[in-house]
């Protein structure tokens, strides 16, 4: 990898590396290809093609009809806005609160933290379906002060989809483990300089933890964006529903597979855009941490 003589062997090894990358890439890319190609085909043809390599090729009767029909069936723009809005707000608060807790668990010494962390990690296994009903009963009794004044019960709002998911054990654990990997010298040096713990968090840890924040962000984004059961239970009016509830709109007696593929292709775009944007942020932050490290 050192910059030196770029001989024949080096070029061969580069080609070899690309070959490996491409072969593995093919294994991962095929569902997306299948999805996108299918979204362009009429239902019957899509199903017939699904058993052969034609599934990956834009052949036969190709059109954007499925997209047009999907727009007619589901208020896509509304659902997309709801999902992105709920996801982003949860994400922003979540990154802050979870990383702060992660910092406390990784860096500070306080009684009880090991037991609490072990318990938190174990809560990751609780299937959401198990707590959905009690959670529903709880949020139904919680007060809220909003535009319409004081109100009991959170149903049919955005915040019922946001607040319960801001803190998550996965995020806390992720930050904890990564902060533990950072060199201890960083903390000790700053303490000597008289920095407070909060300053160490904001000025030392946050700036060099770009990759972790990016990872936590994308994983949280996926989790929130794919929410289904909870928004279904708590948003009774269509105006608060997110995209995954929309998928159900296509499961009529005769499933409109082509439209489903079109819808899925569309709702995947925000996730991809977010991921690509984060990747750039990733690289910049790595460049930055390289200087400091």
């Amino acid at each position: 990898m050192t910059k030196g003589v770029k001989g024949r062997n080096y070029q061969l090894s580069i080609i070899g590396r690309y070959l490996v990358l491409i072969v593995i890439g093919l294994i991962f890319v095929f569902p997306l290809l299948f999805m996108v190609m299918s979204s362009l085909k009429p239902n019957m043809q899509l199903l017939r093609d699904s058993g052969s390599l034609r599934a990956f090729l834009p052949v036969g009767d190709i059109s954007f009809n499925n997209y047009i029909d999907a727009f007619k069936r589901v208020p896509i723009a509304r659902f997309m806005f709801n999902s992105v809005f709920v996801t982003i707000i949860t994400l922003v608060f979540g990154l802050f609160i979870n990383s702060l807790a992660g910092f406390a668990f990784a860096v500070l010494r306080w009684p009880g933290k090991n037991i609490i962390l072990a318990l938190l990690v174990a809560t990751l296994i609780i299937p959401f379906e198990t707590i959905a009903i009690p959670l529903l009963l709880i949020v139904n009794e919680l007060p809220w002060i909003g535009a319409q004044g004081f109100k009991i019960g959170w149903l049919d709002t955005y915040h019922v989809q946001i607040i319960p998911f801001i803190a998550d054990a996965f995020g806390i654990f992720l930050f904890t483990q990564f902060f533990k990997d950072l060199p201890k010298e960083l903390v000790e040096a700053s303490r000597i300089d008289g920095a407070s713990w909060f300053q160490i968090y904001t000025r030392v840890f946050v700036p060099i933890s770009g990759p972790v924040f990016a990872t936590a962000a994308i994983l949280k984004f996926l989790g929130m964006y794919n929410q289904f059961l909870w928004p279904l239970m708590t948003s009774q009016s269509e105006s608060y529903r997110p995209v995954m509830v929309g998928v159900q709109y296509f499961f009529q007696l005769n499933v409109a597979w082509g439209e489903i593929m079109a819808y899925l292709s569309m709702i995947t775009i925000p996730v991809l855009v977010f991921y690509l944007w984060l990747q750039r942020a990733f690289i910049e932050s790595i460049a930055a941490s390289g200087v400091k490290g």
């Binding site: 009903i133 529903l136 009963l137 059961l229 499961f251």
Partner: peptide, 13 residues
Amino acid sequence: GAYNEAVVAAALS
């Protein structure tokens, strides 16, 4: 596909 769950949730709340 999600109607019964919605009704049960509404009944509970």
